[in-house]
Write a protein that binds this DNA or RNA. Sequence first.
DNA 1: GTGGTCTAGACCACC
DNA 2: GTGGTCTAGACCACC
Lengths: 114, 114, 114, 114
Amino acid sequence: MLFAIDPRDRQPIYRQLAGQIRRAVGEGRLGPGDRLPAVRQLAQSLDINLHTVRQAYAELQREGLVDMRRGRGVTVVASGPMARVNELARQVVEEGRRLGLSEAQIIRTVEVQL
Amino acid sequence: MLFAIDPRDRQPIYRQLAGQIRRAVGEGRLGPGDRLPAVRQLAQSLDINLHTVRQAYAELQREGLVDMRRGRGVTVVASGPMARVNELARQVVEEGRRLGLSEAQIIRTVEVQL
Amino acid sequence: MLFAIDPRDRQPIYRQLAGQIRRAVGEGRLGPGDRLPAVRQLAQSLDINLHTVRQAYAELQREGLVDMRRGRGVTVVASGPMARVNELARQVVEEGRRLGLSEAQIIRTVEVQL
Amino acid sequence: MLFAIDPRDRQPIYRQLAGQIRRAVGEGRLGPGDRLPAVRQLAQSLDINLHTVRQAYAELQREGLVDMRRGRGVTVVASGPMARVNELARQVVEEGRRLGLSEAQIIRTVEVQL
DNA sequence: GTGGTCTAGACCACC
DNA sequence: GTGGTCTAGACCACC
C-alpha cells in the first residue's frame, strides 16, 4: 500500500491519510485482516509526525474500520462496503458543512432519505 | 432539460427520474427558480404514468429541492450544492441498507463524521 | 442468604429478587458453585408465586450468572465481577430508557466508550 | 466548577478530567448552556498540558455532552440524565475490560438487558 | 516493538 | 481569544 500527502490539499494531513485508507478498503485493496503500517513506521516514511498518523488511525478506529492495540499494531477489520458507506457519510458531512448546515440539519438530510 | 427512462435499470422509474433531476440541479443545469415540466406533460412525453411523475416530484419536494403548488407548477428551489448533499445522503442510505445496517446504524455512520 | 421483597418498590418482584441475587454475587456473598434455594422453597418462604421466582432465576440464567437444570437446582456460575458488569449494564439500559433513548442509541452510548 | 487531578489515580489524566465533568453534569452542577473553561485556561490552572485538556473535552464531545467550536469555546449541551447514562456506560466498559471481556462480549451484556 | 499518554511549543483559522 | 493541527520528544504498558 502506498500513501501520499499532498501539501497543497487544504484538508488536514490526518484526514487525507484517513481518506486514502478508507478508499483503499472501499476498493478492496485493503481488507479484513490486513495490517496497516505501524504508527512510527508510516510517520517516518511519509515524513510526518507520529501523532498525525495516530490521529488518522484513531478516526478510522472510531468508525469501526480498523482495530488498534498496544503491542499488536493496527489491523483492518471492516469490509469494503462499510468503508464505502463511511466515505459517503464523510462527504455528506463535508458538503453539508460547506453549505453552512448545522449538525442537526445534516442528520436530517439523511433521515429524509430513510 | 431532457429526461430519459432506462427500462433495464433495476431502480424504480420514479427514482430514476428523481435522480436525474437531482443531478441536473447538482451540476447547475437546473437552478433556483427554474420550472420543471408539468406532471401531465412529463408523463406524456416519457410515456409513463402520471402518478410515477408525481411520486418523483414528491420525493424532491420532501428533500426541499423543489416547490410544488396546485396551479403553479413545479419550481426548483434549492441550489446545486444542496442537491449534491441530498444525492450523497441518498447514497449513504442506499449503500447502508445494502449492507444490512439498521436506520440507527446508518445515522450513526454520519454522526461519527460530525 | 436472605432475600426480602419490598411491596412499596415500584420494580416488579422478580426484578427485585434478581437484583438482590446479582448484588449478592457482585459483593462476593455468593460465588461460583453456591446453590440458590429451590424455586418452590424460595416462593414459599417469601410468600410469592412460584413463577415469579422462576422469572427471576431465568433472567439471571440468560445473563450467565446462574445455571439452572431440572433436578439439579440452581447454581451460581459467575464470579462477583461479572455480576457487577451485568448490574451496570442493567442500569445503563434502565437509565437510557427513562431518557427515551432507542435500543440502538443505548448500545451506542456503550460503543462510544469502547 | 472545581476540578482536581489525582496523581496516584491510575486512570490517565484526561479520563479523570472527563469523568469529573461527566459527574458534574450528571449531578446538575453543570447544565446545558454552561461554559467550560477554555482549553488553555484549564490546562494552566491544573498545571497540565493543553493537549491533555483537549483530549478530555474531545471525548465528551464525541459523547454529545459538550459542543466545542473554534473561537467560541466549550459549552455543555447535554442534560444530567444523559451524562449519567454515559458515566454508567463507561463503567460497564471499564469493568468488562478488567474481566478480559472482548468488545463484542461487553456489547452483549448490554443487549441481554434490552 | 507496538500503541497510549503526556509535555512543550508553534502557527493557523475562525470569532 | 478560541479551538484545530502539527511537530519533536519522552516514558510507560502490553506483547
